[in-house]
Design a protein around this nucleic acid. Structure first.
Lengths: 195, 195, 195, 195
DNA sequence: GATGAATGAGGATTCATTCAT
DNA sequence: GATGAATGAATCCTCATTCAT
């Protein structure tokens, strides 16, 4: 072609990058707030002060953007919960669980919008919770303290409690990650493990 | 081979009551499975072997039908959980809770589709859970056994646990209402209340 | 059990003729008030306390019923205005015109609904007015009194005045047919004819 | 021979202003010719060589476009007739009326389609004519020349005459605005005022 | 890098009309 | 003579997506 008027090598901070990031933010916000179907491309670009074709400059389409957000959450989530298991055998287990629950709540808290999308509004979310539950089962299954319990039920209960507390007390800033972790320990593990 | 279209008027052996009920069932099923937006009127009527205008013979429109389903669930749910509270003071509290949890799980079990719609996929659902949580708080707040606990957290945890167990163990028929109720009592109340 | 459904079929004390007449009346009323498109078959039968299939028992379809109403008006109207012409030469012309205008207004007044349909809301109406205008021209064209006038304009003015007066003063019962006829004579013919 | 469908995006040499204006013109034309109900959005866009979504790019919906046209006519019409009244006292009244009638006919003539919509096919039209009639009454009521007349009848007659003449002689180009104004003066005012 | 202008492909809803009883 | 129950055939409108500039 003739004269390329564009400067070579785009800077990371070019306005293109900025636009993409902005769209991503707004999309995340809107998806999290209104869900996939009620969020229109026109809403996203409007709130980013851009136009619809610009959206397609940076994202393949609506669905793939949404899927990307889900994937991103999923990866981070799995990474986070896997630490619980891998560290399960080291040191005091209750302390470990406490520490890792705190980390999990902090993770949720660090990106509430993404969490809402990935953990509360997709079908994928159920699979993640299932995985989380399996992992907890794994950790508890050989513990004498839980011999009298139906471990699957304990695991699912924990997952459910965490899910609900995140939404109602963490996202609303009524409780801190540490507090939630402590109370969960207190409620589910204290009398069983301690002493 | 042309698709032979149906003749216009009334079908042989057709009945309005039956058609309405059928549409309602199919709609509930599809909404519960695919959500509001992915469920088309055309899907509903197709699965009921009827045509679109027939849908409008019995329901005002898609949204109002969905809202009706939500309302129906809401009313039944509130009625069910209100019993927990109203009976809270009578007799042995743990027994009461056990009985009413059983009833609640049975209610969920009795219409899983409606429950999925009303308790898992609408915004209304969060309000219902909030209400449920408030009610639990009310029941626990004066109990010495929970003096050391953050009651809001206990309440939300319980709601979360119930929600999750319903989905993963009740709807899959892996556990019975009574079992779930017992285990919840065991996990949350046993050591606290019994002696 | 509980719901005693209404018996189908022929209603006690109902005659086909009566139903037909009732439907015709209601249709005329509704068409005249709301026009062809805003009048639904369902409206007509509802206001006659009948059902849609009954409508088709007596009328071919919506359009043909409407056309029948138009025809009916048209025939009566043409018959009425033709008298004006045929009597034009007999006796005192002003008196003749006065008498026939009165008859015309009485005709309009006798069935305002039908008049509204046939004279105010169809395309046919314009043809009727054109015809009326031509007829008036015919009557006036050899009159020395109108030698100075553009007869077509006089004719169309008269038709327009009659149309408007019918709607605003006759149908509202603010003036009587005779009054309107007299005033029109006064306004258009008096000084011209009466010496 | 397949119908080759248009490609998706922007057309070569397309302009929003032009498209909107074109749609407006075609809509006005079709509404005026066929009325609101018989004019489909699909007709409008077809005659503008565009597609249905494009219509909604420029207009909110069918009804609001139609209402806009009515409003536009209404405003212009009221402005025009208000001049008649406001100038009624200045100079020779017959001359004034003649001048303003001419202006009115010119206004009708300048946009026959819009006039047909706003003055001949809506319910609003009757209100406008009523208003026009009231205004004429106002102008005539203190005139000694009309002492013997029923002024309401004169006013309504005039309105009716103007309405009819516009349709039959102005729109068909059989008469000019000035001619019509002159003849109306001649017919209604000449002998009364002059002399 | 971004926008103005357009469209394809549905999806909900309405209404006149028609069978079966 | 009349109704209950249904459908065919539109029609409006929306939304993600794409071309030309």
């Amino acid at each position: 072609m003739g004269v390329s008027t564009l400067p070579r090598g785009r800077r990371v901070n070019s306005s293109g990058e900025r636009s993409k990031k902005l769209l991503l933010e707004k999309a995340t916000e809107l998806f999290s707030k209104n869900g996939y179907h009620k969020t229109k491309i026109s809403d996203i670009v409007k709130s980013a002060n851009l136009t619809q074709p610009t959206f397609y400059l940076y994202f393949e389409n609506k669905e793939s953007l949404y899927n990307d957000l889900i994937s991103q959450f999923k990866n981070n989530f799995l990474e986070t919960i896997n630490r619980i298991q891998s560290e399960a055998d080291e040191g005091n287990i209750v302390e470990n669980i406490h520490r890792n629950l705190t980390i999990l709540f902090r993770f949720f808290e660090s990106n509430p919008h993404l969490t809402k999308i990935g953990y509360y509004q997709t079908e994928e979310a159920d699979k993640l919770k299932e995985r989380f539950s399996d992992l907890i089962e794994e950790v508890l299954k050989d513990r004498a303290e839980f011999a009298d319990y139906d471990i699957r039920i304990v695991a699912h209960s924990l997952v459910g409690a965490i899910e609900r507390l995140t939404l109602t007390l963490l996202f609303t800033k009524e409780r801190e990650p540490e507090q939630l972790a402590s109370e969960i320990i207190n409620l589910y593990f204290a009398r069983n493990f301690v002493k």
